[in-house]
Amino acid sequence: AARKAGADVVVVSLHWGTEWQDAPDDLQLSLARSLTASKSGNRPDVDLILGTHAHVPQAYEKVNGTWVVYGMGDQIAGEMTNHDGAHDPRGNQSTVARFTFSPPSRPGARWEVTRAEFVPQLYDIDAGRVVDVNAALAQGAELHAVRDRIRDVVLSRGAAKDGLVMAGG
């Protein structure tokens, strides 16, 4: 409907996935394939999918030529406990998805992602603020393990080969 109404870029935000699971679940994978395969004429119906719900960062992946962020994690959360009742620091880790779209080279064609980035973040419970992990590392913070965990999860489905980069890192 958005494309038919004249939208140049269609971003779909989905509340999906299994809480506390780093990997996208079968429903996320299936729905991502289905949504990214949907077309109206010669253009895809969806240009970007941004997912939420799992409380932890999940993979980014290009599916049928369309970027999918399965889960960005919780940007602002307090002390997080998982389904086992245990404190789970992953619930304070997140990413910001940054995708730069450029207009098509010919009228009626698809707008293309010309830059795909993610920013690893951590919610500092004591300070009550979101921290850009790479900026904090540059200032001497000991967040290498947090940054590496987020990066490994985000890139776990091969997004680096499709051009996804970690901003500031």
Rank of each mutant, 00 (worst) to 15 (best):
A160L: 13
A167L: 15
M72E: 14
M72T: 14
A5D: 14
L122Q: 12
N92V: 10
E61T: 02
A159T: 04
Q139W: 00
V119E: 08
P104M: 07
I125T: 06
L35C: 10
L122K: 12
G91S: 11
A23K: 13
V10R: 07
Q58F: 02
L122Y: 12
P104I: 11
I125P: 02
Q139H: 14
L31C: 01
G108H: 08
Q139F: 00
K161M: 05
N92Y: 11
W67V: 01
V133T: 05
F118H: 13
L50D: 03
A159R: 02
G73W: 11
G128I: 05
T100L: 14
A54M: 05
S34A: 15
R129F: 00
P103F: 08
F101M: 06
A32I: 08
V56K: 09
S38I: 03
V96K: 08
D152M: 03
V46Q: 03
R149T: 13
D132V: 03
T100Y: 04
M166H: 07
D132G: 05
A167M: 11
A77N: 15
A32F: 10
P103S: 09
R43V: 09
Y70S: 06
T114M: 04
A159E: 06
G128D: 01
E61V: 02
T36A: 13
A1V: 05
T66D: 04
P89H: 10
L122S: 01
E117L: 15
Q21P: 01
T66A: 12
A1D: 10
G71N: 06
T66M: 08
V69K: 03
Q139C: 02
P120E: 03
D84L: 13
L143S: 09
L35H: 06
D8H: 12
M72Y: 09
V11S: 04
N134I: 02
R147N: 15
R149D: 15
R149Y: 11
K39L: 00
A138K: 15
G85Y: 04
D45L: 12
R147T: 01
D162L: 05
S40Y: 07
V146P: 00
D22L: 04
H15C: 03
L35W: 10
V12H: 01
D22F: 02
T114Q: 00
S156E: 08
P89N: 09
Q28R: 03
R110Y: 07
A127E: 11
V130E: 07
H87A: 14
L164G: 12
H55Y: 12
Q93A: 05
W111I: 03
D148G: 06
E112F: 02
N134W: 13
F101H: 07
R151D: 12
T36M: 07
D162Q: 07
P120T: 10
T100P: 06
E79L: 12
H87Y: 15
